[in-house]
Simulated scan of single mutants.
Amino acid sequence: MKKNIVLLIMIVSLTGCLWEKIEITSDYIINGNWSEHVNSIEINKLRLKKDSTINPFANLNQAEILEKLEDDTSFIFVGNVKYNGEKYSTRKVFFNKKNNFLWWTTKGDTQIETIGSLQKNTWYKFSSLGNYPYIVYIYVDSANKVHRFTVNQSNW
């Protein structure tokens, strides 16, 4: 019985290491998990729910993030990263420059070449990151520094 538990813990630990790094700044994202077949992204601007407060400089847990933030439907964009000669897993996808693909709203009624740099003092949610099983929440502070919180929604 103890061997099975140890084996299970080892498998879960090793599986968690299979995902590559994702780097997000206010101007671009690099997703080491993207490939020719898996290369999507969804970016949602978030706002605080009514009567909520949240300190983006604290060590927040996923319950606090999920309970206090909600989508701002004025900014929800989806993209499929197209091949441009660069390796998918190391490619910088810019928010404020053309990337050789279009961003579109989840309603599909708007397509644009750039979505602009991420705004200061604003929360964002990054999902549909290929085979990466987590959702990444970020806060861009007044100095344009990104504070990252990774959430496993399958536990929620």
Rank of each mutant, 00 (worst) to 15 (best):
61 N>C: 11
26 S>G: 06
54 I>Q: 05
29 I>P: 00
18 L>N: 09
28 Y>A: 08
51 D>T: 13
38 V>S: 13
71 D>K: 14
105 T>G: 07
69 L>H: 04
116 G>I: 06
8 L>Y: 09
45 K>T: 05
152 N>Y: 13
47 R>G: 04
152 N>D: 14
75 F>T: 03
42 E>N: 03
84 N>E: 10
12 V>N: 07
57 F>A: 10
39 N>D: 09
38 V>C: 11
23 E>F: 06
87 K>H: 14
129 L>P: 00
80 N>I: 09
95 F>E: 00
113 E>Q: 13
150 T>G: 07
61 N>Q: 10
135 I>P: 00
28 Y>Q: 10
141 D>C: 03
98 K>C: 03
64 E>R: 14
17 C>G: 08
95 F>I: 09
32 G>I: 01
49 K>D: 01
108 G>S: 07
3 K>Q: 15
94 F>D: 02
91 R>L: 06
49 K>Y: 01
134 Y>C: 04
23 E>T: 14
20 E>D: 11
29 I>N: 01
94 F>V: 05
148 R>I: 15
21 K>N: 15
142 S>C: 08
113 E>Y: 08
123 W>S: 02
78 V>L: 09
71 D>S: 15
93 V>S: 00
90 T>R: 11
66 L>Y: 10
113 E>R: 13
115 I>Y: 00
5 I>G: 05
145 K>D: 11
69 L>S: 03
63 A>F: 14
40 S>G: 10
35 S>A: 12
84 N>A: 09
18 L>Q: 13
25 T>R: 02
83 Y>A: 13
65 I>G: 02
31 N>T: 01
120 K>W: 06
29 I>K: 01
45 K>V: 06
90 T>G: 10
36 E>I: 14
7 L>K: 12
128 S>H: 09
142 S>N: 15
14 L>F: 10
116 G>F: 09
144 N>S: 14
104 W>L: 11
122 T>E: 13
53 T>M: 07
119 Q>H: 11
47 R>A: 06
84 N>R: 06
65 I>L: 15
7 L>T: 10
111 Q>T: 09
147 H>A: 08
119 Q>N: 12
17 C>W: 13
28 Y>R: 03
31 N>H: 08
18 L>T: 13
137 Y>L: 05
112 I>E: 07
78 V>N: 04
65 I>M: 10
107 K>G: 12
133 P>N: 11
6 V>M: 07
105 T>D: 09
129 L>S: 01
98 K>S: 12
152 N>P: 04
53 T>P: 01
57 F>P: 04
4 N>D: 15
93 V>W: 00
3 K>D: 12
24 I>L: 05
145 K>E: 12
80 N>C: 14
30 I>M: 08
3 K>F: 08
97 K>R: 15
69 L>K: 02
25 T>D: 05
29 I>G: 00
40 S>R: 02
88 Y>F: 13
103 W>K: 02
96 N>A: 12
32 G>E: 01
26 S>R: 01
65 I>Q: 02
62 Q>R: 15
53 T>V: 11
135 I>W: 01
50 K>P: 06
28 Y>I: 04
92 K>G: 03
23 E>A: 04
117 S>K: 07
24 I>D: 01
140 V>N: 00
130 G>D: 02
86 E>M: 07
129 L>Q: 00
143 A>P: 02
137 Y>M: 07
40 S>D: 11
26 S>M: 06
32 G>C: 04
12 V>K: 08
145 K>H: 11
84 N>H: 06
25 T>V: 08
35 S>W: 08
